[in-house]
Computed example of a mutant assay.
Amino acid sequence: MTSNALYTDLSGYYDLMCADIDYLQQSHTVHRLQQLFGNNGRQHLDLACGTGPHVAHFIDFGYQSGGLDINQPMLDLAQTRCPDADFSLQDMCSFSTETPPDLITCFLYSIHYSAQLERLSQCIASAHAALNAQGLFCFNAVDKHKIDNNSFVSHSAQHGNSLFKFASNWHYQGNGNAQALMLSIDKTDNGITQSWQDSHSMVAVSFSQLQQLLEPYFDVHIFEHDYDKLVPWQGTAGNALFACVKK
């Protein structure tokens, strides 16, 4: 086995890395939340959209959908996937839109990429400013006090002649407002494995802190992190789905 840095740009491996994610189910659940709590508008913006898989499903649902990301290679792939969508290279903590969206989403815990509480506040304010009246802001988040540093998720995927194994976990030191997303990738060809590890800086926030940041701007509804059915958050799980209606 050899160990070395494989990738400097994950855009070419992003879809493979996320191959176990049910984008359709996630998108459909948020579409239901828009029907229940939103203004029934069909203008959609996806923050930290990556290669655009959620955008593709919202287009299928009849939305005028687009996204933003800070990674241009990701956006290039998103534009190929969704040629009629509008994508822009922007920071989700300080973005603007020409057409006000009715629905803003931020999937895959990407809200934590704001990295600092101040920037998280700016992201929330930017979403509020961009939305149409009674627009909906939906995202998922993890409570820093519920993080188990020893818990991780992993999956394998075949690509050509290569077998990839992806693993990730949250790491929180127990105090402060910084946590990390730890990521590892193994690529095996002909019995030889190369490995790559990285740590992404994320903002650590409790759900009570998050509610305090949101409440000046939104009426906040919190649900269990279950894309099969909508169940109000019971107050114990460490991850949840937030549906926030613009005040």
Rank of each mutant, 00 (worst) to 15 (best):
D84H: 13
H145M: 14
T193P: 00
L89V: 09
A78S: 03
A129N: 12
Q209I: 05
L89W: 01
Q197M: 08
L136N: 00
S96G: 11
C106T: 07
F107N: 03
S96E: 10
A127H: 07
I192R: 13
H155Q: 10
R81T: 04
A127G: 05
H145D: 15
S110A: 03
Q211C: 05
M92L: 13
A125P: 01
S201C: 08
T105Q: 08
S88V: 10
N169G: 06
D84K: 13
T188N: 02
A133L: 03
A130D: 07
K187V: 15
Y113P: 10
K165Y: 05
S162P: 01
S96C: 12
S126E: 10
H128T: 01
S94G: 15
S151A: 15
N169W: 03
P83Q: 04
S114N: 03
I192L: 09
Q173L: 11
R81Y: 02
S199V: 01
T193Y: 09
E215G: 00
K187I: 15
Y172F: 14
C123P: 07
N190M: 10
C82T: 09
H171M: 12
C82M: 09
L213M: 14
N190E: 10
A130R: 08
F95C: 03
F87H: 05
L214N: 03
S94K: 13
S154R: 11
T99Y: 00
